[in-house]
Design a protein around this nucleic acid. Structure first.
Lengths: 135, 135
DNA sequence: TACATAGTGTTATATTATAACAATCTAAAT
DNA sequence: ATTTAGATTGTTATAATATAACACTATGTA
């Protein structure tokens, strides 16, 4: 399993976009990011998507596939960019990265019926968060 | 956990689109579906998306989120539309629905650190399929 | 019948993402 | 210092994915 080192030095665009996502309490969409960084000179979608691609690749952010949105990796034990799990509230859309050693071990060791292992995966759980459950 | 009954009677558009996806050996994208059913009178994207939404809802098809594509549910034990797992080959893009009692039990019973359970989830494994591994 | 619900057809538009190409930066190797 | 390779940037244009809004039609049921 490939360990992603997080000490990558980010380029200017990458840093601007990472900082924005990192400060956001919720996942951000690409064009929302674009809108927010236009005052910093990033004017075109491609500039955003290129930075996003790189940030995903090095594990600084993750893409929430079912939402087409991006969140910073706050999972200190997640040195692996390609084994991700999230819980998503279907009401308030709050997204939380799950860091469970048990879960990640289970999935990293899971073998399909052909005996095949997959070290890379993305898991999205859906339900109601605590707050929304109480409403 | 909500059991999805598959004896839904499909409408004309739903049936046309389901049949197409069901016959396809690989996941189909919405506009590829549209192209294929235009000769049957389905002319607009919305007609396709509406049928897809319904078919997903009743569990006849699943959406592969990372690919924006749709496959028929061939998992006879999968009466639950909202607990899905797939393996995806990163070279040939072959997608297989995983039906593992162990896996689905593990995930249905998984509790996050707040003790929260999520009966609905989507899991996508990535790797190389057998054929591509041998190349 | 009449009422509610779901589905349809249509046009227009919103949202998400990439192609192509020239220019620039950066690090390492002469 | 100069060259070279690779990654990154800036830019315009366009492709691909998905939904809004509205009038109309079918279907089941009270």
């Amino acid at each position: 399993m490939k360990i992603m080192h997080k000490e990558h030095i980010l380029t200017k665009n990458q840093q601007i976009i990472f900082d924005l996502i990192d400060k956001s309490p919720e996942p951000m969409k690409a064009y929302s990011i674009l809108f927010n960084v236009q005052k910093k000179g990033i004017k075109a979608p491609l500039q955003v998507y290129r930075a996003l691609d790189k940030l995903v690749e090095i594990g600084k952010i993750h893409k929430i596939e079912s939402r087409n949105a991006f969140i910073a990796c706050h999972n200190s034990s997640c040195q692996v960019a390609n084994a991700t799990a999230f819980s998503i509230c279907e009401i308030c859309e709050k997204v939380t990265e799950i860091s469970s050693v048990g879960l990640s071990k289970y999935l990293a060791n899971f073998k399909d019926k052909d005996g095949m292992k997959y070290s890379k995966y993305n898991l999205e759980f859906f339900g109601l968060c605590k707050k929304c459950t109480l409403k």
